[in-house]
Nucleic acid binder design. Structure first.
Lengths: 182, 182
DNA sequence: GTCTATAATCAGATAGAC
DNA sequence: GTCTATCTGATTATAGAC
């Protein structure tokens, strides 16, 4: 699972080969196929694992903290995962992985739970005036999700001028405070 | 070129097959290979074409307008291209297309010119106080480039609740003004 | 559960006629 | 320049022994 996770993060589903996974784990490819019926199921298992970790982390966030702070923490966690090379790339529109994931009960349930939790924080943050009320909550949700695959993170990482923590705070600021002067 | 462009936008380089390109154009695959030595070169030609269109549009933006307005216009144009299905997906880190593009003189020259132009507007906008001075210009540049592959655009488009113009203004606002209330 | 060996398929690329 | 036919290699998946 860990190897699959890394490979999905490095190259994405299409470019990842089952041979690579087997080689990295150190077993024969056929052995892998005894555990997972297809490449899609193999990848889906890794995606489910990440989703579970997200559920655990988001679930442990304080109910007492301001909703905006919880949102920021959630996004920070997500970006840290990506910078560490542990965030599997989202399946693109036409990938065969997409269909498998959408029919995966555990994955979809996790996605729903995470979305509901973030959605509640978003509405609470708009209600308490910390988050702008001019955006539809769903647009805010998408914008936060998109930080999980933001190429700005890897571009800045490649530049080598900033630590992971600096990169996270930088992107977090552009996301919540915007590029304009305040 | 147009067919390649669409396919790159729809599925990305790896998932696009030369057979599809040939079928969509209505000629045999071998005929395609008389014009382009490889799949990479085929895709690179399409990328060069887009880069030229960007150079033309950015070059025509007013020298008299405030730099921030030029930046916003540039990002609007880019997002409109993506929403229209004409923005080829960026080659991912490990794609073989990346190497071909990086050794393509015309593409790299175009990228440099565009980056220089946007970079100058960014610095001018920071100088005139419209853009926040707390971000390194390179981070701002990356953030603007990233709008070309922002999944929020297609998510909102899939939702069917907003027109392309509304989507563009929405994402433009989150980008420049941020999610926080002002 | 793991292996070697192999099937089956797909996709990039080429040969060579017209 | 275009075509049909084919080559070549990579990749998903399976057979069947241990």
């Amino acid at each position: 699972m860990q190897a699959v996770n890394r490979l999905l993060a490095e190259k994405g589903f299409d470019a990842m080969t089952v041979d690579e996974v087997a080689a990295r784990v150190g077993i024969a490819k056929a052995s892998l196929y005894k555990h997972f019926p297809s490449k899609e199921d193999l990848a889906a298992a890794a995606m489910v694992r990440v989703m579970r970790r997200a559920q655990e982390f988001f679930g442990a966030l304080s109910g007492a903290a301001p909703p905006l702070e919880n949102l920021r923490s959630a996004v920070r966690w997500t970006m840290a995962l990506k910078l560490a090379g542990d965030m599997p790339a989202l399946p693109s529109q036409n990938s065969s992985l997409r269909a498998t994931l959408m029919s995966n009960r555990e994955y979809m349930d996790g996605l729903m739970e995470v979305s509901d939790r973030l959605g509640a924080w978003i509405e609470a943050a708009q209600a308490d005036g910390s988050l702008s009320r001019k955006y539809p909550p769903i647009a805010v949700l998408y914008t936060l999700y998109a930080r999980a695959c933001d190429p700005v993170l890897e571009f800045l990482q490649m530049g080598g001028q900033h630590s992971p923590e600096e990169i996270i705070e930088l992107v977090l600021a552009t996301c919540f405070e915007g590029l304009n002067a305040r």
